[in-house]
Amino acid sequence: MDYTIDELARAADTTVRSVRVYHERGLLPSPDVRGRIGYYGHNHLDRLQTISRLLSRGMKLNGIRELLDAWDRGDGLAEVLGVTDQPVSEAVEDPIPQEYSPDLPDYLKKALAASDDPLEGYRLVNPRCCDLATRLVDAGLPVSAVVELVERLRHDCERLADRYAEAVLSPLAGQPYAASERAPKDRTVFDTNVAIARLMTTRAVAELIDQALARREGLPPTAA
């Protein structure tokens, strides 16, 4: 779905002025300009909502830009948090730290200033990873081991995406768009096809992982 700047601001519950400021400060990518009108997509909306969450936690725009730049580069949260790269098997033997105070970058310290939770970084950029990490800590794993485990999971998922993105997205979205007149309506169809391809792929992957985990633990798989 395409948004004008007014529509994007309303969808993100912010102002047009804020959207323009984020552009100027390098937090938001430029829109797709067609004619004299700039059009924004779901990625812009997701980025705006992330910025709003970070601002609500007291983080400044410069810090948010550094955090988002690190995330866009693919830097793992372990690197962002400054957690040492140690095997999970060794880290699990460590006692659960009563206070976890890694040497954090200044911009992340600002993001965490309102909380003593070392997993707050996940909560900011990936709430579902935070849910998993929190449950693992509650189960008795040290924070260092949990961060390492979740980061390995993220890395494996990125490798899967790199391996299959072209094979899935090209026939379902890229090739039809390349064969079209590439008019605005064709771009709308392309965006829709990409969204459908992503949804179908993520659902298929989730089902495969669920079945694989069930086989290893002797648990019944959940309904699709």
Rank of each mutant, 00 (worst) to 15 (best):
I37E: 13
G38P: 15
G38E: 12
Y39G: 05
Y40T: 00
Y40A: 05
Y40C: 05
G41L: 10
G41R: 14
L45K: 12
L45Q: 05
L45E: 03
D46R: 15
L48P: 03
T50C: 03
L54H: 08
R57V: 02
G58T: 01
M59D: 01
K60L: 08
K60W: 07
K60V: 04
N62G: 12
G63M: 04
E66Y: 08
E66F: 02
L68G: 00
W71K: 05
D72Y: 06
G74W: 05
G74N: 14
G76L: 11
L77P: 03
A78E: 06
A78F: 10
G82E: 05
V83H: 03
V83C: 10
D85M: 02
V88A: 08
E90F: 08
A91K: 06
V92M: 15
V92L: 15
D94G: 11
D94N: 14
P95V: 04
P97S: 07
P97F: 11
E99V: 14
D103W: 14
P105Y: 08
D106C: 07
Y107D: 05
L108H: 02
A111M: 04
A114F: 03
S115D: 03
S115M: 01
S115C: 01
D117E: 00
L119V: 00
E120M: 06
G121P: 00
L124R: 02
C130R: 15
C130G: 03
D131R: 14
D131G: 09
L132C: 10
A133Q: 10
D138V: 11
L141N: 11
L141K: 02
L141T: 10
A145G: 09
V146W: 07
L149T: 12
V150H: 09
R152D: 06
R154W: 09
R154D: 14
D156N: 15
C157L: 14
L160W: 10
A161V: 11
A161D: 06
